[in-house]
């Protein structure tokens, strides 16, 4: 055993990490969805995730977390909450401007839309669980649409 080659040792290292810190089961599927959606609309500009926090709301076992995305001068803050078999997104766009926000779910063909209020707020309710992304369309058509990366509810 003392003459284990470098390749044999590295194979052992690969093997133990694959067993003891395996790839999460959902990860490949989730990344395929992320990449495919990003590739399918290269004309839509992507927002960048800059912050993510998890808060553990104890009531009824529901979970909520917040996400913050930026694109240019636009800031998008989301509170994503699970409630039973459905979920909702409460959003805030800064600075506020007339926009339509659509939730595109991986599991349902129908999209859910909302228009941003004068104060920049919007809400999307009765969303399915699973992979989701938001597409934001300024009413000023001279501006391009933009979209968040995929996130999971």
């Amino acid at each position: 055993m003392s003459d284990l080659s470098r390749e044999a040792l590295l194979a052992i290292v690969r093997d133990v990490w694959e067993k003891n810190d395996p790839v999460p089961e959902h990860l490949v599927t989730a990344m395929q969805a992320t990449a495919a959606m990003a590739a399918s609309d290269l004309d839509v500009e992507l927002m960048e995730l800059v912050e993510r926090s998890t808060e553990l709301a104890g009531v009824r076992g529901s979970t909520a977390y917040t996400l913050r995305f930026v694109h240019g001068d636009t800031d998008l803050l989301l509170r994503v909450a699970v409630d039973g078999a459905r979920s909702r997104v409460d959003g805030w766009i800064v600075p506020p401007e007339p926009m339509t926000v659509r939730a595109i779910a991986g599991s349902e063909p129908a999209s859910h839309g909302a228009v941003v209020s004068d104060s920049g707020r919007f809400e999307l309710t009765d969303l399915p669980l699973g992979m989701l992304r938001l597409r934001i369309e300024p009413h000023d058509t001279s501006r391009p649409a933009f979209a968040t990366p995929t996130f999971e509810i």
């Binding site: 999460p24 990860l27 989730a30 990344m31 990449a35 590739a39």
Partner: peptide, 18 residues
């Protein structure tokens, strides 16, 4: 953490597509 690792991997795939 697992979550941070998943975020890094997602960022990597988005970077590839873009």
């Amino acid at each position: 953490s697992e979550q941070a690792a998943e975020d890094v991997i997602q960022t990597t795939w988005l970077a590839l597509v873009r």
